[in-house]
Computed example of a mutant assay.
Amino acid sequence: MAPSMKEIIKKISELPTPDFILKRIMDIASNPSSNTKELEGAVLQSPPLVAKILKLSNSAYYALPRKITKVSQAINILGFKTVRNLALGIFVADSFFRREFDFLDSKKFWQHSIAVAIASEQLAQIINYPDKEEIFLSGMLHDLGKMVMGIITPETVEMILNVAEYKKVSFSKAEDMLNVMTHQTLGKILFENWNLAENVIYTAEFHDTPEKLQIDSFSMNVYIVHLANMAINSIYYGYSGCYDIPVPSDVVWNKFDMTSKKFLNYLNNLEKKLSESNDFINLDAFIEGSEEDSEEENKDG
C-alpha cells in the first residue's frame, strides 16, 4: 500500500530541519539592510560551522589570491549569500547525503547536486544573469526530493531507479510511468516547511518540467537549473538516477538562444571547472572542516 499524501507530509515534517543558527544566517543573508558583524556573529555561534566555512572558502573553486582565516573575511570577499549557501550546503550534506542506502549511492547523488549548483552558476555567468548565488542555491537543492523519497519511501525510489535503468529513461519519466508522488513535489513540500525562498521552491518543483511553470518571475531560475541539470547528467551519466540521453526542453533552449556549438563550449568549460572543484564535489571533503581553522578563529575572535 502506497502511503497517503497525509502520511507523506507528516513524514516530511519529521525530517531534519535547519536549526536556529542556520535560520538566523539565512534571515540575515536575505535581509538587504543587515551588516557583516551580524552575519559573523551568527556563524561564530557554531565553531564546527566556522571551520567548515573557512575550509570551503579557501577551496580552489573560488581561486582567491590569499588565504581566508576569519569569518568576516569570508563574508566580505565571497559575500553574504555565498556564506549562507555554504552553511545551508553543509547542513544538507550532513543531514541528508550522509545516509547509507542499499539501492542508491548518496555520494554520487551529492556529486550530481553540487555539480548542478556549479553548472548553474557557470551558465548564469554566460547569459549574464545577475543573481548567481540564488542560482547556485537552487541548483544545489533541486534534487533533494530524491533523498527525501529515499528516506521516507525507500521502496519507491528502488522501483523508480530499476525502471529508469532498465528502460533507459530519466528519473522523472520513470516516476510518471509508476504514477508516484514525484521528487519535484517532495522537494517543494520540504522547502515550504523550511520557509525557503520561492525561487528555490519553484526550481525544486519544475526543474524537470520547465514548460509547466506558469510564473514568469521565476522562469529564469528554473530554466538555468534545468539546462545545468541536463549538462551534468550528460557528464555524470546515471548519478542522479537518470539513464536517458538528456534532451533540454525547447522552451529553455530557445529562451537562451542556445546552439549546439555554444552548448558544447559550455560543457567543455564546465568539465574544467568541475575538475577544480573537488572540495565541493567530494561529499566527505565538503562536510569536514579543518580543526586548526576553528581554533585560529576562536583565538582571534
Rank of each mutant, 00 (worst) to 15 (best):
M1G: 14
K6W: 15
E14L: 12
F20D: 13
R24H: 08
N31Y: 15
L39G: 00
G41T: 12
G41N: 10
L44Y: 14
Q45E: 14
P47W: 02
Y61F: 12
K67A: 15
T69W: 03
S72I: 15
I77F: 07
R84G: 03
N85F: 05
L86E: 03
I90C: 05
F91E: 04
A93E: 00
R98I: 05
L104K: 07
K107Y: 11
K108L: 15
K108P: 07
F109I: 13
W110H: 05
I114R: 00
I126S: 05
I127N: 00
E133L: 03
I135M: 08
L141N: 01
M147W: 01
G150M: 01
M159V: 06
N162F: 12
Y166G: 09
K173E: 13
M177F: 12
N199Q: 15
Q214L: 15
I215S: 10
N221Q: 13
N229H: 13
S234D: 12
Y237T: 02
Y239N: 10
I245T: 08
V252C: 02
S260R: 15
L264Y: 10
N269W: 08
E271L: 11
L274E: 06
D279L: 11
I281W: 04
A285G: 09
I287N: 02
E288W: 09
S290Y: 09
E297A: 07
G301T: 04
